[in-house]
Design a protein around this nucleic acid. Structure first.
Lengths: 348, 348
DNA sequence: TTGTAGGCGTTATCAA
DNA sequence: TTGATAACGCCTACAA
């Protein structure tokens, strides 16, 4: 009676299957790869031998021998507490699966060294492509340059030179929602961001904030802009920085959406209500915006479309054999979603 | 001037490096693997040639030749919208990194076929081990049986026979929090679960719910138990099922925590307040319990400890060469976290 | 319909 | 201090 404890069987090889079924190795190889031009009896012998031995092809050996590409796509991301990334991952996986690719999610937990390690990893296993999540780690640039010699790379809202890239209209979206707040009577508007100086999506959004204020004759107040490192509770900390001001804002715009529940918490912990005391807006359009109460007025970015397009761009490169077509930059249009988190204070 | 468009370089091989540096292939191999017993000049020649060619070892070839293990651990999970999984993934990655292993997160988006595909994938690339997330897909059992012949497997709250497993005290924890609700005067207590007939963590928790009622002389009412498939908004749907009852419960216990924000939303959408009109409890102890308002009274399971222990168990199997030690089952003790989501209604 | 033999990129053994 | 050469597990002409 076989014990089912955790141990490795001497992983069967093609040769083992060949021995057991009494045919040659190459016959086994062909049959197991789906060849039909063999006697039924041979096919059956081989298949049942493989079954019996639980033969699983060694994909590495196969790739080396046939010099074929694997179908592994890596998605490199800094964290998963921001559901932006998990949502993206889910969409990417679904779409890649339709194309018969496997997604491997490489989570580097905000550690550049690990980001680099995963880049090396993906390069060394000769993955077929890499999708960059939205993050900014300049120290990776050299590793990216090496990786790109081995496989195509696509960026989803990340600053990498000379690769295909998808984005949402950061500037326009932010400009629109800040203008919207102003139209609702808000003049004291806070902006919560991150410490990512060189990340263009942040600077785009921050510039839009400034421009919208300026175009409406509202002076910029630096104390209304808070940034902080990205941590699970950064929203709470940043919101409190604003709420602690002697003259706190009447509206808070969040650079991205995952901090919103914490911002809500910070406001509610002071006994203030949303939107009557403080209005809140954000950018992203994640599901959580419809989960919080009041539901969030936000700028929706079509993340599913972005993810799918990123895959399309990547697979084009892969399957068109790394064509030299210049890098594409596709920008999706945002949508303003009016829900319940903004008060009209024009009459106050 | 070199074009930096997205293309593959003819990935350099050892032979290329050898040619460029004018030494033999095997010398290059040794030097690039860190051998010191060569002339400095040779070492330098080789290293700079490798650098120049952006040589990256082909890990597959390396493994085949040396028949060494890779350091890939797969984490197989059904979704990422439940932050239970993303939190686990993050902890696993951090701990594995300390041990110099790479985590590859395999998200199968609730599709058995994809779960099976990822199992095959991990087996075919000869990953060093697999960590099973908490889910129940009986159709995978055969594939698991094959996979386990190639590498050790550890389960985190998943029903798989004969593998190492970590758990939290489901029964006791649920029993405690239901008893707690009863002590607070609640007699009408709803239970929100899932359609996972054979998942032991659900049946454990449900049995504890029933037993706690019984032991306190409260009759079981089947209409107070709602289950539904696991979707992003299942909490909203399930909560409404309870709230629509002619005689709705005064307290709702959630089998797990990620549905809590939706349950809150469902309650608040009726103008009801938590905990005055409806008390809410749950099981997990995720961060989101402290993000919602009122903060959630819940059963905390030590997920970080579970994750780390799962890794320990797995690495023991791997590094002790798949020992035949019988499967371990380690159960962590829960903790009741009293926060603000339960009202005392004994005097009503 | 089946088998032989060479090769994929690497490591490892042994000789020079 | 270096370099042939035989593996590793598999694929694929080409031959039989």
């Amino acid at each position: 009676m076989e014990e089912l404890t955790n141990r490795i069987a001497s992983a069967a090889t093609l040769q083992d299957v060949a021995n057991l079924s009494g045919v040659s190795l190459s016959t086994v190889s062909k049959i197991l790869s789906g060849a039909n031009n063999f006697k039924d009896s041979t096919i059956n012998k081989v298949k049942s031998a493989a079954e019996e031995l639980n033969y699983m092809p060694n994909v590495m050996a196969r790739q080396i021998a046939s010099n074929s590409k694997n179908r592994i796509i890596g998605y490199l991301i800094p964290n998963l507490f921001n559901s932006y990334y998990s949502g993206m991952a889910s969409t990417l996986e679904s779409y890649l699966y339709q194309h018969d690719y496997e997604l491997t999610i490489c989570l580097f937990n905000d550690d550049v060294n690990r980001a680099r390690a995963y880049l090396h990893f993906l390069t060394e296993i000769r993955a077929s492509g890499i999708i960059f999540g939205s993050f900014n780690e300049p120290e990776c640039l050299k590793d990216i340059d090496i990786a790109r010699k081995y496989m195509p790379i696509v960026s989803i809202q990340a600053d990498i030179e000379n690769v295909d890239r998808v984005d949402v209209s950061d500037y326009d979206g932010t400009y629109e929602i800040i203008s919207y707040l102003i139209k609702k009577g808000h003049k004291k508007i806070g902006f919560l961001g991150y410490q990512y100086d060189t990340l263009s999506i942040l600077s785009n959004r921050l510039n839009a904030y400034k421009d919208a204020l300026k175009d409406n004759g509202i002076p910029f107040r630096s104390e209304y802009v808070v940034d902080y490192k990205q941590t699970p509770n950064s929203g709470y900390i940043m919101a409190n920085r604003l709420l602690n001001l002697a003259d706190p804002p009447t509206a808070i715009h969040c650079f991205n959406e995952y901090i919103v529940p914490d911002v809500y918490g910070a406001i509610q912990d002071r006994g203030l209500s949303i939107p009557d005391d403080v209005s809140v807006t954000a950018f992203d359009g994640l599901r959580l915006g419809s989960v919080v109460r009041p539901q969030l007025t936000t700028i929706y970015g079509p993340n599913d479309a972005m993810a799918n397009t990123a895959v399309d761009l990547l697979l084009n490169r892969i399957e068109a054999n790394y064509s030299k077509k210049p890098p594409q930059h596709i920008i999706f249009k945002h949508t303003l979603m009016e829900r319940g988190s903004v008060a009209d204070i024009t009459n106050r």
